[in-house]
Design a protein around this nucleic acid. Structure first.
Lengths: 114, 114
DNA sequence: GCCTATAGTATCTAAAAGGATACTGTAAAA
DNA sequence: TTTTACAGTATCCTTTTAGATACTATAGGC
């Protein structure tokens, strides 16, 4: 979504919900985080785990996650290039949130309900 | 986001996360749910609680939530019209998820972190 | 007879998000 | 010498999402 952007999040009721959603929404961010919770991964390792994402989108989503301080990008100055993506402390703090989303999804999405 | 749409959600790792996000993402859905958790509300009551939403967007978001069985729309055949929106059982089951999002947002979004 | 409240539609436009495709540079392996 | 792996960019295009604005129907109150 074109999201609500605030300089600070002193906003109306329900807004921290939106704020958090803004960070993890993005077609691939949830899955990317999901894989990074398991372990640090290189760019192409992520690509192989997400066969349908384009390089452009993977880069975009990673850059956004990085800008929001959820992940850390580490560049090794070697050739061929080596770039590792890992979770930051802040990113790791999202684990219970992602877990809550996953639990709910596992429980309710597979059935006829939605 | 233009979301992943599946007939059934038998999909890859991390996908229930996306699936759940698909339901509550939408610029206003989080806030709408937030208010409906408190009590059943009429269309214009919601409008007054969300002064910045347009009528069109409120209708759209409510219709999507209804289609996903998260809320129930009750029309009273009176004039002027009276339409009430309330949470379904499924919608209410989202409460811990929304709470997790809110808790995280309250804790981390206000600071400099993001 | 006009105004108000309610719960919407209908149209049009702008912005954001996502996707397809082609291209880059370097070193080591074949 | 050509090919391969890596980690990206650059362009262009389509789809989705959101917003602005104007319009609708009806009963009751004034």
């Amino acid at each position: 979504m074109p999201r609500i952007r605030h300089k600070s999040f002193e906003c109306n009721a329900g807004c921290p919900v939106e704020g958090t959603l803004n960070l993890i929404d993005g077609k691939w961010k949830g899955v990317i985080l999901y894989h990074l919770f398991e372990k640090t991964l290189r760019f192409n390792e992520l690509r192989r785990r997400l066969p349908d994402i384009t390089q452009r989108m993977l880069t975009k989503q990673l850059r956004e996650l990085e800008k929001n301080n959820l992940i850390i990008r580490t560049v090794y100055p070697v050739i061929p290039p080596k770039v590792e993506y890992s979770l930051s402390e802040l990113g790791r703090s999202l684990e219970p949130v992602i877990a809550a989303l996953k639990t709910w999804g596992d429980r309710y999405l597979s059935s006829n309900e939605v």
